[in-house]
Amino acid sequence: MRVIFTTWAWPSHLYAMVPLAWALRAAGHEVLVATQPELLETVRHTGLPAAAVGRDVDALAAFHAIAFPPSAPPGKGARGGPRVVGLFAAIAEAMAPELVALGRGWRADLIVSEPTCLAGPVAAAALGVPHVRHLFGTDLLGNAGPFLHQALGPLCDRLGLPGVDLAGAATVDPWPSGLQAPAPSRRIPLRYVPFNGPGRLPRPLPGGEGSGLPRVCVTWGTTPARVDKRLFLAGRVARALAGRARVVLAVTAEQRSLLGELPPDAYVVESAPLHLLLPRCAAVVCHGGAGTVLTALAQGLPLLLIPCLPDHVRHSAAVAGAGAGVALPAGTGDPEVIAAALPDVLACGAAADGLRAELAARPSPAAVARELETLVQLADR
């Protein structure tokens, strides 16, 4: 079986699919990751074969406009639905023709795409092969079919397609079922296996167990700082928690200069896979990105969430609604509000551990790979 995984140039969307892609490789199937040129080097760091398709699109400008609309303060309830749909349609326009050509020349049997990469279902329709959606968090576009079909109309016309089945043959879903919206196609639950990108094994975290303070990991993913440095609140959070927690800051090398002055006992770890830091922590404070949230829940850790973008708001509300964390209003930077929320977060440990147990009981990537084999075999009959 020959499988193309496709995503546009956003690393966290790629990382969500890496464990399943490797499971298919380990089962003896051919796997190729097709993406925009900007992400090609990141794909190579996963060890998977890569191919560039189409051209890059300035997604950062669109996300900046969503986070900082003229009529609202930064991060305060920005609603970017029309802008986001337009962005995803523009990315599909940039990628789809070359993705179709690649799939035809490579003789693909299946296309797997994250839900915001609309070039995936378009190419699958043009090639006449099954398409599978691979979610990375809440199903952000599951109910957006009418808007997406309208936005993709000109592209489908150019490719001679009467329409596109955006729901796909199935939806691979790593998100906890109780926190998820109904899928538009058959749902295939997937055990979440963290892939946080390449990085170094962190040094052992410093002691201090006798202090009586909980160890809390503060991380702001990779998205907020890329969109605008004002959205990167990790340093502010660390200062707010001084004296209430032993803070471990998980950042990239590029983010360290954004932290500002830190409390003397704050500990900074650069470019370490997040899941290796968390076993000795009691909670996670973050922006609500899907990868960070799932990595914390896979360890059974409650979360304090301060969202930046609309998808972060959705993830944060879902976690808080399940009792596995506390969500503050988007963009909250008040140190007293952040510090006061910590006891409530720590009290969410039992609910977070329940979600950990649910995720651990799900089918492994290897099991899901076998299910995709069956899906393709049935489609060939």
Rank of each mutant, 00 (worst) to 15 (best):
L14P: 04
G178N: 02
G81A: 14
R203Q: 14
G221E: 08
F68V: 12
A340H: 09
A125H: 00
V33T: 06
G105F: 05
R314M: 12
W106V: 09
P69T: 01
A183T: 14
A367V: 13
A350D: 14
V247D: 03
L213Q: 00
I306N: 00
A170F: 00
A341G: 09
L14D: 09
C348A: 15
G86R: 02
A167N: 09
A298E: 12
A101Q: 13
V3H: 07
A92P: 03
A67I: 02
G235Y: 01
L155H: 09
P189W: 00
E336D: 15
R381N: 09
I188M: 15
P11S: 11
G323E: 03
V326S: 06
G80Q: 08
P307E: 00
T219Q: 09
H131W: 14
T46H: 12
A351T: 06
P189N: 09
A27F: 07
T332M: 09
G168C: 11
A61Q: 14
G47S: 02
R370C: 11
L127H: 12
L213C: 11
D380Y: 02
R381H: 13
G199R: 07
E93A: 09
P146Y: 01
A272P: 00
A341N: 00
G300W: 05
V368N: 12
L118S: 01
P97Y: 08
H312I: 01
L152T: 13
N196G: 14
S211W: 03
D56Q: 02
A51S: 14
P363W: 10
R200P: 04
A94N: 12
G54D: 01
G260P: 06
